[in-house]
């Protein structure tokens, strides 16, 4: 059992939902990323996803595109991100998930990458342009190295297919809340609750929901029907708007705390009524 599985197990026992935060590694630089992971954990993040910047992020909206570009502008490389995880592991046991498009991983070498992930302390990998049909080789090396592979399911995926995707996923299943690219949205997709209920009926794996979730109210609402929420672009918007490292840490820390409180507030309330 790796850290992701343990975390979801623990949350389940506590009746809590996972707050999963996403930032692009190297945006605006790797030192800040290091600080942000620790700060987000302190303020209530349960799992952190680190985005590997890519020249052609075709599932991403403008916010993450720009973050990716900033990270590439200062030459952030996959191997530096893996080293960063190694450094983080000296300080924290928070589950860490790398999110990378396939090509940087492919160029690194699937097996070499999986091995290094394990050595450095990565717990899981999300590859948004790798669907289960194409993932045989990756799944083999990921399993060998006890890495979770988190696949995505989308509103356009038929339920039968979602069941299969969930079957291939380890750690958790990532449900994409909307038909579109990443990016903070004012409104949640209206079908989201229905969709999550249906998915929970076809899988026992934890289901985390992301894309578009931008404020504590939305996070709370979605967390009621899932096992976790993923917030990315809204955090990156804050990083982009903050001018110093201190401001970044403070603003992101406050925001993560507000997400956490809203979600945990719900949990506390439900505990009282029990």
């Amino acid at each position: 059992m790796n850290r992701i599985e343990r975390k979801f197990g623990q949350l389940k026992r506590e009746g809590r939902k996972a707050l999963i935060t996403f930032i692009t590694a190297g945006d605006p630089d790797l030192d800040t990323t290091f600080g942000l992971v620790l700060e987000m954990e302190k303020k209530g993040a349960d799992v952190v996803e680190l985005g590997v910047p890519f020249s052609d992020p075709l599932a991403d909206g403008t916010t993450i595109q720009r973050a990716s570009q900033r990270a590439l502008n200062n030459k952030t490389k996959l191997k530096d991100i893996l080293k960063l995880v190694y450094e983080l592991r000296k300080k924290t046991e928070i589950p860490l998930v790398l999110m990378s498009y396939l090509n940087p991983v492919f160029k690194y070498g699937l097996e070499e990458f999986a091995k290094t992930c394990r050595m450095m302390g990565v717990d899981g990998v999300i590859i948004p342009d790798l669907v289960p049909e194409e993932a045989e080789e990756w799944l083999r090396v990921a399993r060998l190295n006890e890495l979770s592979t988190i696949f995505l399911a989308a509103p356009t995926s038929p339920l039968e297919r979602i069941k299969k995707i969930a079957g291939k996923s380890t750690g958790f299943l990532y449900y994409v809340s909307l038909t579109g690219v990443t990016g903070a949205r004012d409104k949640l997709n209206s079908n989201i609750i229905e969709a999550l209920r249906a998915i929970k009926r076809v899988t026992n794996k934890p289901v985390a929901c992301g894309f578009g979730i931008s404020n504590p109210q939305q996070a709370r609402k979605v967390s009621r029907y899932s096992d976790g929420v993923i917030v990315g672009s809204a955090i990156i918007d804050l990083i982009e708007r903050s001018s110093t490292r201190r401001a970044i840490l403070r603003n992101v820390g406050n925001f993560v705390a507000s997400l956490h409180h809203k979600m945990v507030g719900d949990y506390n309330a439900s505990r009282k009524t029990r």
Partner: peptide, 21 residues
Amino acid sequence: KSGYFGIFGGKFVPETLMSAL
């Protein structure tokens, strides 16, 4: 059937597009 020419080809896309393909 999977869209491969030898080792080349395939469908490396976000899940959202799979049903349209």
